[in-house]
Amino acid sequence: MEIKFNGEHTFPVPREVLWTHLNDPKVLTVCLPGCTGMEQIGEDVYETSLKLQVASVGGTFTGKIALTDKVEPAECHMQMEGSGTIGHATGRAAFELEEVSDSETRMVYTGTGDVGGLVAGVGQRVLGGVTKYLTRRFLTTLDKYLADEAVAAKGDGNTNPS
């Protein structure tokens, strides 16, 4: 069954910083909900494993994400496919990064996906809401990650008075 998502979010960092983070598997592993690992297996191709719970359905999910049509630092497209105990999914997504100011960047994203198996059969009533929730959790976790990093950077400055 088809799912769609789109939205925008403004991050308190310059565009280049955001771009770098969005292309860093380590950052994504921390910020993607349920992500238990992300490994680069080719140029702009990553293998990822997730542990997810949608409504009454929980399980593991492994998939591939390929980044295409990258226009650094402004635009990126993604293709995803994967499967696991909770079903299977394919999807396409894209984001654009717009400079709001020197220290603020707006991300505009759209995506469509097709899911099947258990998650479609049992979780379909809540799938739209869960998609929104997971997306928001990714964005807010990344926000927090960026904020923590900024605090740590400042802290570094304070404890190194040379």
Binding site: M1, G117, A120, G121, V122, Q124
Partner: peptide, 10 residues
């Protein structure tokens, strides 16, 4: 659904 997923399993 149109892709053949049974959406009333419970």
């Amino acid at each position: 659904d149109p892709s053949g997923q049974l959406v009333s399993q419970s």
